[in-house]
């Protein structure tokens, strides 16, 4: 079975903090996979690891041949993958205010010393990102364009490299509501036109509903539920996913399950199931005694990445 990138039991630890604690998942060609979680779930650390900006403590991130990481030209610390490109939450911060749009989009080509047809490729990337006519934007500076256009420039800067995988870190979280849809539509369009895969990290379940083929729900450094979007957002099985979905303002009304407290510190991951101290199912007392005791003592382990859908919960498996 083919995949663009395959994560096998990836751990990223910072001292005693286990930010990413055993994640296995793969991204298939042409699919949009949404990694959903709250802050502290480790999703941002994970996406940085896939990009190569973050060293992995253990486990393996395997890319297909075209997305193979190349060691960088002048031997510095960064490790860029030509076939894996990234877009960011804050497009304003992601653009150097002293560079023109042209220079920003051409940067990847210049780093890789691919100077043939540079202007043509930059123009094509800009118009693919919806900035037309591209020549109008060449000499402009980031402060001269709007927030939505800045995100399009960031996307153009990634697309100029013709990646197989686009990593998106909260791509619309800092944009105005009415612009959000346009950027998401653009991402879908890119998938259709170029066969690209997208791994998008977000706390926004509406975004997943809008564009994702599959959803992976992260809690405290691990994927706790994984499956097709319709199933995860339609009939969630893991109690955390269910609680999360119940509080989304956009849900067709289901009874709210507001969890108490916040995600615990990743330096003190609870024993047993990492979700058990906040689990409404366990607290309801409806679980059979032997299941309940497993919840507090035994780790259900990572979800099976090869199953169609899976939830890391003793009560559902």
């Amino acid at each position: 079975m083919s995949s663009i990138v395959s994560l096998n039991d990836v751990h990223v630890h910072f001292g005693s903090s286990r930010a990413v604690d055993g994640v296995s998942v793969d991204v298939k060609p042409g699919e949009v996979l949404a990694l959903v979680g709250e802050s502290g779930s480790g999703k941002t650390t994970l996406i940085r690891a896939v990009q190569g900006l973050q060293t992995v403590t253990s486990g393996e991130i395997a890319y297909t041949a075209s997305a193979e990481p190349v060691s960088e030209p002048d031997g510095g610390r960064g490790r860029g993958n030509r076939g894996v490109q990234m877009i960011f939450q804050d497009p304003t911060g992601a653009l150097n205010p002293r560079q023109t749009i042209y220079e920003i989009v051409a940067e990847g080509l210049r780093i890789r010393k691919e100077s043939q047809n540079e202007a043509e490729r930059v123009g094509r990337a800009l118009s693919r990102a919806g900035l037309r006519p591209p020549e109008r934007f060449f000499p402009m500076y980031p402060h001269q364009i709007s927030g939505g256009q800045r995100q399009r420039v960031v996307i153009a800067g990634a697309m100029v490299m013709e990646p197989d995988l686009l990593l998106a870190d909260e791509p619309v979280a800092s944009l105005d509501a009415s612009i959000r849809g346009e950027i998401l539509a653009l991402m879908l369009e890119l998938v259709e036109e170029t066969g690209l895969s997208i791994l998008v990290v977000t706390h926004d379940l509406g975004l997943a509903w809008n564009i994702a083929d599959r959803v992976a729900v992260m809690y405290l450094g691990r994927i706790v539920e994984l499956g097709p979007t319709e199933q995860i957002l339609g009939e969630p099985r893991h109690p955390y996913t269910r609680a999360l979905l119940s509080v989304v303002p956009e849900t067709t009304r289901m009874e709210q399950q507001i969890l108490i407290g916040e995600i615990p510190d990743s330096r003190r991951i609870p024993v047993g199931c990492r979700f058990h101290p906040r689990c409404p199912l366990l607290q309801s007392g409806t679980l059979a005694a032997e299941v309940a005791s497993r919840c507090t003592t035994e780790d259900p382990g990572p979800v099976d990445m090869n199953a169609d859908s899976a939830a890391a919960c003793w009560a559902v498996t």
């Binding site: 509501a177 009415s178 612009i179 849809g181 539509a185 379940l205 509406g206 809008n210 564009i211 956009e250």
Partner: peptide, 26 residues
């Protein structure tokens, strides 16, 4: 209407894989 549609109703098939937004900027 555009603002209301910007955040899709989860479970609503009409917004599935069909993000909706407005052209242009505020």
């Amino acid at each position: 209407r555009a603002l209301a549609a910007a955040f899709p109703t989860i479970g609503d098939p009409s917004s599935r894989l069909a993000p909706s937004g407005l052209a242009g900027d505020p």
